[in-house]
Write a protein that binds this DNA or RNA. Sequence first.
DNA 1: GACTACCTAGAGTATATACTCTAATAATAC
DNA 2: GTATTATTAGAGTATATACTCTAGGTAGTC
Lengths: 254, 254
Amino acid sequence: MADRAIGAPDKKRQTTTIADEFMKTRDKILLSSLELFNERGERNVTTNHIAAHLAISPGNLYYHFRNKSDIIYEIFLEYEKLVDFYLDIPQDRALTLDDLTFYLESVFDGLWSYRFFHRDLEYLLDTDPRLRKDYREFTNRCLSSIQEIFWKLTEAGIIELTSEDLRAAVSLNVWLVVTNWMAFLKTAHAGDEPASLTITELKQGIYQVLTMQMPYLTPEYRDRVVALRERYRPSLPAAGGAPVKVVARKERVG
Amino acid sequence: MADRAIGAPDKKRQTTTIADEFMKTRDKILLSSLELFNERGERNVTTNHIAAHLAISPGNLYYHFRNKSDIIYEIFLEYEKLVDFYLDIPQDRALTLDDLTFYLESVFDGLWSYRFFHRDLEYLLDTDPRLRKDYREFTNRCLSSIQEIFWKLTEAGIIELTSEDLRAAVSLNVWLVVTNWMAFLKTAHAGDEPASLTITELKQGIYQVLTMQMPYLTPEYRDRVVALRERYRPSLPAAGGAPVKVVARKERVG
DNA sequence: GACTACCTAGAGTATATACTCTAATAATAC
DNA sequence: GTATTATTAGAGTATATACTCTAGGTAGTC
């Protein structure tokens, strides 16, 4: 995963797929919209911009989508699908530390790919009841998954979170930290550039998430999780800092 | 501290102050802007709306403020002042549980009074370098304060967070939860209405913050903090729910 | 009264934005 | 081939938004 700051004038993108002439117009619109939204923020991207970016006419765009909300909604559905896939929990075996790593890495990958979404979330939900309803269900699903993961990590003897109440509250905190970490980086970041952010920095949010789990680690796993957490430690505590080594993605077992 | 932030809750006022004819136009503009921003979101409030709301002309508004950004910036300065005031840390005595309660209540009061701010934060910072710089410093100041509070709570024997590293990481998580709690409520809330939210619900975020501190409580204080936390427990875990009893605001000592 | 500094009204403007309409072209079916 | 459907271009529109400009009022001071 290449480390590229958003907003950089980089024609040959590595993290995202460039729309090419073999794609259907509809898909090109979705892809370009996502790219532009991520780079400039939904508020700063008009349907005319999207059409111009693709060198198609506004009429063409509106042939494929009724309005801007529809484009955003379809992108959300993709995001939802991705996260649901990532958060899948194996029912036939215990969870491992590799699973935990995978969950964390994946969720932040998803956040990165659709990073525009959480930025203007409230406005988007205010203007599209459909999205509002779906997002609410999505959130609840995510929270349930996190709780279940904590439960299975407890079963696996990795953490100890037996009280359901506490598990729910901790899960919610995890969700809050995960979904707010990017906004924090963008706003509190040391750099003066309005919107420079790398996926490596984003993944330092994993450090924060693991911080929350530390008190609940079992003695058997404590050292290993602490070591895992260390891999994501921000190089410069409160000033952004240089990229750390990116941990290798583990394939799911089972 | 004689300065009172506009719209900030004080003894007599409930949530907002209505602009009256005895105020200076400039202050009326700031107050109305804050009210409208909080109610409808900055994105949905134009300078023409603000002027119309006050029954003054756009020209009048622009006589007092160069542009919309200036209005927002001035409101931010008030917000900043308020939070800085709330987060003041007594250097001549140890912290008490009442202090902790005060900090939590106050911070959420501030969030409520200026709740529009965090909603469109990224856009606002993108479009105003001045605000961007000030907000960054503000964030760092808040983080420092939280860390110092945790340190003094440790000194006071209420919590045990002696590792500076850990204290910094936990403080950051507290900040993330505090600043994201409102967005969570608004987006994941059970109600179908786009923007219903009460300060009582908002303050249930205190439950989440105290959840994070629980593992670090000393045995001497554990029960008391757990009881405090219980006062903020959401009535219906993941579905919003009825208001809980609002805890009385304690005056600062010293 | 006259001077001055401050304040206000309200019409007006340049630009942007989401979206529409019509006509033409390409693709596909028969 | 022809008929039909899917796709596209591109000019155009209604509305909104941030902001300007000019002319005039008001309050205080001498």
